[in-house]
Structure formats: structure tokens, C-alpha cells
Design a protein around this nucleic acid. Structure first.
Lengths: 229, 229
DNA sequence: CGCGGCTTTGATGTTCATCAAGTAAAGTGG
DNA sequence: CCACTTTACTTGATGAACATCAAAGCCGCG
């Protein structure tokens, strides 16, 4: 974890997320921000710790997870910049319900949550922007979970590969930022069966893979497996 | 579906949900409300239809569901009064992502969504209340789904029985408001296996059941099945 | 270098879905 | 109101899908 600075003037989030905050107030907010960079595997927030900050991802990739009573992790979702993942329970709970962990080098901008709440209490349009963001973030998690639940093992693995290929990397070739075990924790299957499925995709020439490097060689086939599997 | 009226003066939701709206404005809002009563099985909202209204449940019980491309339904959650289920995607989407159906005689209060949005845009404290409600509603759905996913068949059925017993009816004896198939659609198993599990619970003297009437006779045992199963 | 974590494959067993068949209950039209 | 159709419920038999257990190779790291 390291601290760095990046100019607020060029921040794209500024126009998207704070569009209803006037310039003078915004500069005020920006002057209070703390920017932090997390390395792969670094914990950004931990479940059951108090929520004190409002955070957004400027760069990188994170996973959202929760540890079950038996010690096993469940991955809830992944988030990239503009996904505003830290919105999830910050307005309903005083403690994090989920952990957030960097799965790529990730830069996060933090603001004191009290300041954000104060602003929201005074600026209704900003509050409305927050509602929309919260609503979108939760909606996509709920929908994605439903989608995964109705697929079988192969369909789920195919779905995950397509998710990273189209949503995250926008390329047929990419470095999987997560381990086989993490895939399993996300799709709700065992590590062994995830590996078996990937091997099978490889044997059937649907993908090429070497370690974490994946190339989708037969996109149509993979899509069909995801849809009907 | 029938229309009726119930005095706003006694409405409990008034104090909870509209606590930051001044009396005169509130009376304004209340005068625009439309109250509707739905019978069991009646559709309250249908997925893919435009969202025009802000709704809250005053009485009864509903299920939230979505139809998969193959025609099979998935039940996302159940909601009782004060659960504000219609909050789910109304601020992020223009169409309902989910269907809401009455599983008990249910009374719903409807307000033009534009009016609510207008109020929220002017009244930041009200908007903050909305954020909290949206956040709570989605959080509990996401958490509940995670909880169910890590249980096996018996654990899931036990969990559902406990959910209705403790959350909804607050009694060891209750009339299940849903069919075996709906239980299956909620916990993600087949109808046959839900029935088999209930029969087994009955044989093991964990529950008594006759049709939809359920009595939990061995609560500790059922809790243990839910926890470890 | 050795240890632990990640990956891989195979063998085995359990859990659960599917298929089939029948009863009961509830809605439908003549 | 009764025959008819449909939907819900139930049980059993079978097989497929998936978890578990075991063993070994690989890689990074202290």
C-alpha cells in the first residue's frame, strides 16, 4: 500500500459522480481526498470493520468477498473503475458487510464518509446521484447472481471467461487476475472442477491457456456453452 | 385487485419513511396516493414493464421473481410491510427488472414516481432516507442469497422454514404462503427434492405438516440442520 | 533447500436432477 | 353440478453432475 497523488482536475469521476456539486464545493472536497494505491492481494476493506470512508476506484480491479462461518470465502462480485463498489452498505450499515481486495494494482480515492453524508444532506441532487449509483451497483450484483445460479458447471466457467473477456479486458486474450480457487469461490463450485472444466475447454479448442494467460479461440462455442450450459 | 382507502393519519410508514418531509408537503403527497389491494396470485408489477410508480406494502406478503430465458422462474426474495421492495431498481432503471406478486392478500400504496423523485431532488434529507432504504433492501437480498448458496438441500429447506417462522410469522405454527414449487424456485433446487426433504423432516419429527400448515416441533434440530447442512 | 500454496489428474462416492407414475386438489366449461 | 383439464403434491428408480479424497508436479519465497 502506498500513497500518491493524482490531479483532481483530470479526474473523470469528477464530472460523472460529482456533476451536481458546484465547483467551489468540489475543490473543497478534492482537497480532503486521500489517494492510496494497493498491490495485488492487498486488503482494501475488511468485513466487520467500521465504515469511515467513502471510496472509489480510480484504476485497477478488486474483488468483493465475504467469509462464511466455516472459514470459506465467497466472492460476490468484481469491480473496476466507475463501478463504485464501496457504495454497497455504507448507507445502511456502520460496519462493512464485505471485504474488498485488490486483484490488480489498484488506486483508490478516499473521502471521509461524514463529509459525503453532510454534502448529501445539503445537496439533494448529489443525493439523487448517490441513490442511482447505489441502486445500479446492487442491481447488477443481484442480476449477475441469478444468471450464474441457473447455469451448470461448464456454463458458469464459460460465463466467467466471457465476463472477463468482454466486461473487463475487452479482448479475446487476457491474463486472468484471479486464481482457480477464486473462480470457484465466485461461481460456487470446487476448485478441482473449475480446473477440469478449463482443461476440457482447452482440449476442445474453445480456449488456449497457459497458467493465467487465456485466449478465447472459439467465441461462439463459448457463448453457446455459457447460454445453454 | 380492488381499490380501497385507509387513512393516512394512522399510517405507520408516515413516520418512518417520510420523517423528513414537513407536514404540509406530506399531506400533499398523501392526497395523491392510490391504495390498491391484491388477492393471492395477483401480479403487482411485471418485469420489463415501465416503472411509473413508487410503491410500498402496507399489509400482506409478496414475492419478487424473475423469469429466466428458458421460462423458469427464480424467486429473489419475499417482502412484508416496511420492506420497501419496490425500491430495488426504480432509481437505476426505467423498467422493472423483477416481477412482484402477492402471496397473501396485500395492500399497496402507490405514488407517482415523478412526484417522489421531485421531492427527493428538493429535499436532501428525504433523499438520504431513500438511500438508506435502497441500501438496506439490496443488502439483505445479497446477504440472504450468499447464505442460501452455501447450504445443501436440507439446510436450504430448513433455512426457509426458519425464515418464515421467525421473520414472517413469529410463530412455530404457520400456513406456508407458497407452494413446494415456489420453495424450489427460491432455494434453487427441484420441487421433488423439496417435497422429499419436507417428508423427511416430518418422519424425523422435526416438523408436523399437513398441506401448507407447518408446525416446527423440534426447533433446535431444525436450526442445526440449517446451520450445518 | 524445504515449505506452503496453487495447479492438475484420477478414482470414488454423494448429492441432486430427471424421469415416471400415481393421487389429490383446484379450476373450467358444458 | 359433473365431467374434464390442469396444477399441485408425492414417492420411487435411475443416472448425471458434482464434491471429496488422494497423489503428484510446479512455483515462489523465506
Amino acid at each position: 500500500m502506498e500513497h500518491s497523488e493524482c490531479s483532481c482536475e483530470q479526474c473523470q469521476l469528477r464530472t460523472i459522480f460529482f456533476s451536481h456539486i458546484v465547483e467551489t464545493q468540489l475543490n473543497n472536497i478534492c482537497s480532503l481526498k486521500r489517494e492510496t494505491t494497493f498491490e495485488i492481494g492487498d486488503s482494501i476493506t475488511k468485513e466487520n470493520t467500521p465504515i469511515r470512508e467513502f471510496m472509489y476506484i480510480k484504476k485497477g480491479l478488486v474483488k468483493l468477498s465475504k467469509t462464511a462461518p466455516d472459514g470459506k470465502d465467497q466472492i460476490i462480485s468484481f469491480a473496476k473503475p466507475f463501478d463504485f463498489v464501496s457504495l454497497l452498505s455504507i448507507f445502511s450499515e456502520s460496519k462493512y458487510q464485505y471485504s474488498v481486495t485488490a486483484i490488480q494494482r489498484t488506486t483508490v480515492c478516499k473521502l471521509d464518509l461524514r463529509i459525503i453524508k453532510e454534502f448529501a444532506c445539503k445537496n439533494a441532487l448529489f443525493a439523487m446521484d448517490l441513490i442511482t449509483a447505489v441502486s445500479k451497483a446492487s442491481d447488477s450484483i443481484i442480476l449477475e447472481n441469478l444468471t450464474i445460479r441457473r447455469k451448470n458447471l461448464k456454463g458458469r466457467v464459460a460465463h466467467l471467461l466471457l465476463y472477463f473477456s468482454t466486461h473487463i479486458f475487452r479482448s479475446n486474450t487476457f491474463i486472468l487476475p484471479i486464481s482457480r480457487r477464486e473462480i470457484a469461490e465466485y461461481i460456487g463450485m470446487t476448485t478441482e472442477n473449475v480446473i477440469r472444466t478449463l482443461s476440457e475447454f482447452k482440449k476442445d479448442n474453445i480456449i488456449k491457456s497457459e497458467g493465467k494467460e487465456i485466449t478465447i479461440t472459439n467465441m461462439k462455442r463459448l457463448q453457446s456453452v455459457s447460454e445453454f450450459g
